[in-house]
Design a protein around this nucleic acid. Sequence first.
DNA 1: AATATATGTCAAGTTAGTTGACAAAAACGG
DNA 2: CCGTTTTTGTCAACTAACTTGACATATATT
Lengths: 147, 147
Amino acid sequence: MVKDDMANLMKKIPIESVTLGIGDVARATGVAQSKLRYWESKGYIKNHAVTDKSNRKFTYKTVLQVQLIKSFLADGYTLTSAVARAQKRAIYLDALRSFFEDRFAQMDVADHTATIDLGPFDPTPSKHLMAKRTDQQWRFYLATPES
Amino acid sequence: MVKDDMANLMKKIPIESVTLGIGDVARATGVAQSKLRYWESKGYIKNHAVTDKSNRKFTYKTVLQVQLIKSFLADGYTLTSAVARAQKRAIYLDALRSFFEDRFAQMDVADHTATIDLGPFDPTPSKHLMAKRTDQQWRFYLATPES
DNA sequence: AATATATGTCAAGTTAGTTGACAAAAACGG
DNA sequence: CCGTTTTTGTCAACTAACTTGACATATATT
């Protein structure tokens, strides 16, 4: 049984610190590099280049943003409104990350089962909320924390 | 209030499909490119290059793996055993992802609160387990799903 | 129709990554 | 401790990836 502090690892490599090149973003999203350059020039997506001479770099968050813009464009929105709509949804990633950092206290993985300790279950704080995967399915239950 | 199917977006861009260059991995982890090349040559980390002529590509999972190997090395483990130890923890990311795909039915974000519907609470399946963030803190509660 | 927005292409130049060779630490086995 | 193997760094020549700017063009917008 492997037992470890997963949240700690995730904090060592914040997702914002992982950047990728324009080719990687284009491949992942199916959006042409020329579009990405134009969108960047208009300030719709952010360039995280390390120096002013170096190549463009983007984050995973931008990848999601680009994917969103792409689908809104496909739905017939103009670029400007597609960007605005994508903007509102960008906060999801932040919310998601804060949830993981806040609540994934501990995680155990054995051969075929995984268990996540989600910390105190607020309606009954003496018990911990646990999630367990068996047979490809996650189920919740309450447990009294040890020690 | 923005309301949308976030899990769906994340599924459109599986994290494994996002690849990054060796420079990006080196920057994110602080591990030298020469090390990464050597580790790859020994099969400790996987190269996802698109063609046999093109440059090395790695995934976010590899970034975590590299970070793990690095910390085990710093703890005094040999490279071989650091790799073995990192291997066991690599499944965390898969477990995390499967939890997310399985359980993040819906997510709502308003100005200062975020709410995640985690689906039926198995001890009381008629109610849904909800997570809500207020004041930078996530709390769980049960709710009767609407319609 | 005229103008502004959005995208594609191409060439010449720059930055990033590759390989192979070599050197040299660091770990290992006896 | 010594010889060997593993692991890492550096460097030069080469290739791949990306950049910019110019131009063409298609698609809105007014």
